[in-house]
Simulated assay, not measured.
Amino acid sequence: MWEASIYGFVLAFGLILPLGVQNVFIFNQGAAHPKLRHALPAVITAALCDTLLILLAVAGVSLVVLTINWLKTLLFIIGALFMLYMGWSIWRSRPELPVVGEAHLTAGKQIVFAVSVSLLNPHAIMDTIGVIGTSSLRFEGLEKGLFTAAAIGVSWTWFFGLCWAGRLIGGLDSSGNVLRHINKLSAIIVWAMAGYIIIQLL
C-alpha cells in the first residue's frame, strides 16, 4: 500500500523539479513581494491548477481532450504566445526596493498568470497525462487514491517551498542586482520553452 504513496511522491517530485515556466513564476513572485503572504495567490492558484490536472490525468479525462488534434494545436499556440509575453514582462521588470514592475503583480494578476502558466503550458499537461496519468493505471482503489494524494501533496509543498526560497533571496538582495540577473535568466528560459513549442508546431 505504501508503495503507491512513495511511487506517487517520487514521480511527482521528478516532474516538478525542473526549472519550468510555472516554477520561474512562483519563485519570482516570492522574491518580488516584501511579504510572503502577498505571493500566496500565485502559490495557491498554481497548486490548485496542478491538483486539477493530476485529478483529470488519473481520471483519464484530459487524455481524451488531447486526442483532438485541432484543440491540441490551439493549446500549443496559445501557450507559446503567452510564454513570449511573460518572458518580455519578466525581462523588463526592475526588482528594486521597493519592488516595481511586472514581476510585482497584484493578487488578481497573480491568479491570471498562475492559471495561464499552469493550464496553457502544453509540456506540463503532456507530462501530467503521459507520466502521472499512465503511471496511475498500475494502481486500483485505495492504492490509486494514495498515489494521487502523494502527487498532489508534492505540488503543494513544492510551490510553498519555492515561494519561500524566492522570498529569502529577495530579502537578502537589498540592491536588487541578484534578482535582476535571476529575472534575465528566467526570461531566457521562458523564451526558450516558447521557441521549443513553436518549433514543434512547425
Rank of each mutant, 00 (worst) to 15 (best):
T128I: 14
S174M: 05
I68K: 14
N28D: 08
L48D: 05
L201Y: 12
A39C: 15
Q29M: 07
A32Y: 01
V58Q: 01
T45S: 06
G133T: 10
P98W: 10
L55R: 02
L137M: 15
A57V: 02
G101M: 12
F9G: 06
R92V: 12
F147N: 01
A114H: 05
R167N: 11
L162Q: 04
A59L: 10
A47E: 02
L56T: 01
S135N: 15
M193Q: 14
V190G: 04
L71T: 11
L53T: 03
I189T: 13
N28V: 01
Y85S: 07
M193I: 13
W158L: 03
L97D: 05
A124I: 04
G20H: 05
L137H: 11
R92L: 09
A4E: 08
R92F: 12
V21C: 13
V117N: 09
I152W: 04
G8A: 12
N28G: 13
V99W: 04
L15C: 11
L97K: 13
L15A: 08
A114E: 08
Y7E: 09
H181P: 03
V43Q: 01
S155A: 15
V61Q: 12
D127A: 15
M1E: 14
L81I: 07
G153S: 06
L81R: 00
A42M: 05
S116C: 13
P98Y: 09
S89P: 03
A150V: 02
A4V: 08
N183L: 13
F147I: 02
A103W: 11
K184I: 11
G87Q: 02
C163F: 01
A124P: 00
V115F: 13
D173Q: 07
K72R: 14
I132T: 09
L53R: 01
A192I: 03
G170E: 04
T148L: 11
N177Q: 06
W70I: 02
S118C: 13
A59V: 09
A194F: 01
G14P: 10
H181L: 15
I54F: 05
E96R: 14
L36R: 09
K109T: 08
R167I: 01
G79D: 00
T148K: 02
G87M: 01
A59Y: 08
V43E: 01
G171Y: 04
A12G: 08
G79V: 00
R37E: 13
I197F: 03
I16S: 02
G108M: 04
A114Y: 02
V99M: 10
A107P: 10
M86S: 07
A4G: 10
L172T: 02
I6G: 09
I199L: 15
S116T: 15
Q22F: 05
R167S: 08
R167C: 00
A32P: 01
L168G: 08
I129M: 14
E3D: 13
G20E: 14
F27R: 05
L48N: 02
V43L: 05
N183T: 09
I129S: 07
F113D: 06
S5P: 03
S118W: 06
D127I: 11
L168F: 08
T73H: 08
G153K: 03
T45K: 03
L66P: 07
R92T: 14
I26D: 04
N28P: 00
